[in-house]
Amino acid sequence: MDGMIVANENSKKENPVLSINNLCKSFGSRRILDNISFDVEKGEILGLLGPNGSGKTTTIKLALGLLKIDAGNVTICGYDVKNDFEKAIRNVGAIVENPEMYKNLTGRQNLMQYYRMYDDINLETLEWAIKSVGLSNRIDEKISKYSLGMRQRLGIAQALLHSPKLLILDEPTNGLDPEGIKQFRDFLIYLAHEKGISVLISSHLLAELDSLCDRVAVINSGRIVGIQTMEQIRHFGEEKASYKLIVDNSEITSSVFEEKGIEYQIIAENTFKVSVDEDVAETIMTMLFERGVRVKAFAPIEKTLEDAFIQMVTESGGSKI
């Protein structure tokens, strides 16, 4: 996987629900995806994160058979999307971009449209899906009267009504209010971790994935530049721990760092950021004390997903969000 940073090969398990291998796609002479590969395991939530135009939606459309695969393959529950489309797609519920449905029909009539396209499901599942997305009271209204958030909820319901093993959600929280986003996030975690449904979710909202995904695949310019667990992402690029140090004398402190050959950053008045091993940190603290410097604060700095994402993208040579 060219250009991909794999943090933990051992995290791969047998028989992934979704497996994307060396996927390539071009529109005319423009290369959109270049050797994309990743898996989504059973019960796992994998975030697909990347700047606009990085290839997230194209990846999802290829996985759903909406676009033609130029090279590589996509398998869902062991079925190849290209050659065994109907069996593969039977296991997927999806929202691609905005879930546009038929405005002249009610919410229920819309869901019945999709319900009738499956042979082996029952109405109880449909009712469960309606209830789960909180649309029970408005389900018999025409969707032309729905707000954007309600349509999004209905979109999620249509993705769930046939009990899929994999949910593929492209920017699913568009239009949801903060409470709705939280409910949705909790619901997805419930589906993945309690029901064992695998989820591939793309989003440009870093914070959303930060608190939702088990792993995040970072995509930039049509390439996967890293697939990390959330824990790994937070410490991505750190060989040593980072600390924030607040003192009352910055001159003596700087001289101590220079004396010990430690790189530092002054991030505010009398405030430093240093990356050192734990034993070196202890030595520095002793030296500062001996030279009469009062240490007001000394605490490790935790990396955010955004920091890691920007670092990954920057290191891969791509643009930033």
């Binding site: 109907e86 546009e100 396209m117 979109g155």
Partner: peptide, 14 residues
């Protein structure tokens, strides 16, 4: 034109 094709053609039918 409405975008409903994206949901229609991801069903287990050719």
């Amino acid at each position: 034109s409405s975008g409903s094709a994206r949901l229609l053609f991801i069903r287990p039918h050719s």
